[in-house]
Amino acid sequence: MTVTAERPAELTPRRPDRGPGSRADGWVRRAPLLPALVFTIIVTQLPFLFTIYYSLQSWNLVRPGSRQFVGIDNYILVFTDSQFRQVALNTVLLTAGSVLFSLILGLLFALLLDRAFLGRGFIRTLLITPFLITPVAAALLWKTVLFDPTYGLINFVLSPFGVGATDWISTFPLTSVMVALVWQWTPFMMLLILAGLQSQPHDVLEAARVDGATSWGVFREVTIPHLRRFIELGIVLGAIYLINTFDAIYMMTQGGPGTASANLPFYIYQRAFLGFDIGQSAAMGVVVVVATIIVATFALRLIFRSFSGGEET
């Protein structure tokens, strides 16, 4: 709001009482925003303050009276906990792997759909469905009907290739979870990249073709640079959503065997709701938040850049 700058000089620099830029106007503008803002602050921000507070205490729910202030002891325990390190590594592997593979598949699918053909809308609808389906139901589907060693569809499909009755979930727990996640998240990447492909400037594509560029040349020189922003956005958004993966692990492996397929959300859940260790799990929560803030800083920069005009530098 720069209206005040244009006001005649004889006005006092004090805010005007009425009209744009006045104090009253400020509140009129703010009023519609406040309910949402206050609600969000209370429900989403206050808990984090409590998390920090709890993380400085030794507090186990099954030992009443054990609650006491212990400073940074919980954090020392977190960083010396070898299981925590294993689980942190799992989180990185699971998030990065799922994002990467769903991005590659999503790119291929998007390229297939980026042309007019018979039944295109129908195929697109089929392809997005795994993303819509309730994650718990999807995990259930993978655990039983698809990955079952004896009656599972996967082993049946692979049986001509000499794969016996493999128990995928026990043998490769983390990979199995990742397969289910990639299946669910590929449609998201596909839609994002498809939106990118379809927003390509047609005149540039035309010009490149007229200049005699090959399809591959056009793809490499025009499409890939244009898609870059969408791919980056897919990576950060995918990472933000996938780092919170809980449903698939809970349903398919319960983090096991041991902690082989546990990620940080699942491990913290175990500590809090099965171990009742409030202090420890709060400290881990804080560590996860700090790690996420680092990722999110990139994400936010990217999203704001995406908003401030199409083709930025």
């Binding site: 925003l33 933000i240 996420t292 994400a299």
Partner: peptide, 24 residues
Amino acid sequence: DVLFFFISTKMLPVVAAIVPIYVV
């Protein structure tokens, strides 16, 4: 700033808030 605030709440992992939410 307002938009930044709203979006940042989506980026904080819910698992870090579940303990105090449960207690409250």
